[in-house]
Design a protein around this nucleic acid. Structure first.
Lengths: 184, 184
DNA sequence: TACCGTTGAGAACGCTGGTTCTCCCCGAGG
DNA sequence: CCTCGGGGAGAACCAGCGTTCTCAACGGTA
């Protein structure tokens, strides 16, 4: 198995386990047995657990934002593009192993103790907020709308995780529609 | 020191440390040295760490909702009562050791591994949502508004924690005002 | 075939932390 | 004054886990 593949397998396992059970409650041994990558290899690829955590967050950030953008790009009408964000959230929330937002969860676990994780959480949320702001600007709508949409989306992620239902996406979408009207 | 006082001291320490640093990264020894309550006493009062965690969440839940209600009760106009929730959030976010919502953070840390913690998180959020629903009903406004306000508040809590600013409260308040108009 | 670097399996190490135990002090009651 | 039960300080115990090490197998090369 070459290094590239081993790295992918390790990150796949890290994502599944860290996201599903939390970071601190997953040991490197669990990463090994799930990934099939030996401890020695793991420590060659990631000199410490924290670096595996960072790589997990980094890769998930890229994939997550790409999936969102792909969904939004299926729409051309600027207003629809904005609302499609909430459709995509619903799809995400409905995935069988959905357990809330990985970054919000990581913040809860490590925000106070790991500056590097905190920085990644902030960067991810910043990027998401900027993306929404872009959609709002493309629609020729006033800037403050972006902030409201962002808060609705964050609230929906948190609530869907805690309650274990996808319903908050629809609720947030309805509220977002009203905000759109209000700002028009 | 009688049992009542020892219990209060222990819970004070637990709240300060669990909230400030996360639950898993605080050991019982830190609770002991911060509270001044001996380990033996601690284990008499709370047979295991998890029960201290639960007691911490329970007490904080009561205090948190009471403080919110007291602030809201300074207003009589039903519409102002709703919006005052977001004022209170701003006050809370501005407290020097604010570090996000204790329940959202606990969910991120233990939601996947501790059913008892998860139940408390759900109960707390349920209660907050019901409180907002009550304010909405008192104002004679339609029920779905409550859900939107709730999501805005949750988004504000998360974002204020991650970004370390109180600004999200004002943003959520503005959006809430627009929702109120929209639903009127 | 002999050599050598790499790898995997898993033991070993060291530390942390939850929980329990030991030992000593002290104050109440006889 | 003696006894005794409760409490405090902190050592001890034990399990988990991040990290490193040992050792044997293996594949490529002359």
């Amino acid at each position: 198995m070459d290094s590239e593949l081993a790295r992918d397998r390790a990150l796949d396992a890290a994502e599944k386990l860290f996201y599903g059970r939390g970071i601190q409650s997953v040991g490197m041994d669990a990463i090994r047995s799930t990934s099939g990558v030996s401890l020695k290899r793991l420590y060659q690829l990631f000199p410490a657990k924290e670096q595996l955590v960072e790589a997990y967050l980094d890769r998930r950030d890229v994939v997550w934002r790409q999936r969102l953008a792909e969904h939004v790009d299926r729409h051309t009408d600027p207003r629809e593009r904005i609302l499609s964000v909430f459709d995509w959230l619903r799809e995400w929330f409905q995935e069988p192993d959905f357990r809330g937002c990985a970054w919000i969860n990581s913040y809860g676990e490590l925000g106070a103790t790991s500056p590097r994780v905190l920085a990644r959480v902030r960067a991810h949320k910043q990027a998401f907020k900027a993306y929404l702001a872009g959609l709002v600007a493309d629609a020729g709508l006033p800037e403050p709308l972006g902030g409201g949409l962002y808060l609705l989306a964050e609230g929906a992620m948190v609530t869907a995780g805690i309650e274990g239902t996808a319903e908050p996406a629809a609720e947030a979408g309805r509220a977002a529609g009203l905000l759109l009207e209000a700002y028009r």
